[in-house]
């Protein structure tokens, strides 16, 4: 079996690419499509740096075969801002200094957005558990959790 022709949607855009049958979605995004915003920290599902959504569900792109995305919708960090406008999560991460080195940031943002899409008003504990699949070694998580809670409030329209 040679390379597989895959038709998918990435960040809402119809996309076609060729991949090796063993190739992961992570590798296809980075190497075939030059979407390097999705990061690799482990390739074994342990760090969350490679987080993307597949039909709206949060997944590790290192644990999805590229071939599996045929006919499905993939969402990556590159699709998060709307043109010139950052998503409130992105803005709050900046305001709260929720990144130091920033390599975990795309994964956290994608995961946090998946959480807020399904749970608009999470508690601190819910945020911590929902983001437990994303490792950050720089921040101790404090500012990340605050940024997510603050973004959630803004998205709900809470004024404080």
């Amino acid at each position: 079996m040679g390379r597989i022709h895959v038709r998918t949607r990435i960040n809402g855009e119809a996309t076609e690419f060729l991949c090796d049958p063993r190739q992961t979605l992570l590798d296809a995004l980075r190497d075939e499509l030059q979407l390097t915003g999705t990061k690799e920290g482990c390739t074994t599902g342990d760090c969350g740096a490679c987080s993307v959504t597949l039909d709206g569900l949060l997944v590790c792109s290192c644990l999805v075969l590229a071939a599996e995305t045929e006919g499905h919708d993939v969402g990556t960090i590159e699709g998060m801002a709307q043109g010139e406008t950052l998503h409130p999560l992105q803005q709050k991460f900046l305001e709260h200094a929720a990144l130091q080195c920033g390599v975990c940031t795309p994964g956290f943002l994608v995961a946090a957005k998946a959480l807020l899409d399904r749970e608009p008003d999470p508690s601190e504990k819910q945020v911590r558990y929902a983001l437990a699949g994303n490792l950050c070694r720089c921040t101790g998580y404090d500012k990340i959790i605050r940024a997510v809670l603050d973004a959630a409030a803004e998205l709900r329209g809470d004024t404080r």
Partner: peptide
């Protein structure tokens, strides 16, 4: 360098 880092 923030915007570059939150947009990938």
């Amino acid at each position: 360098d923030g915007v570059d880092k939150v947009t990938g």
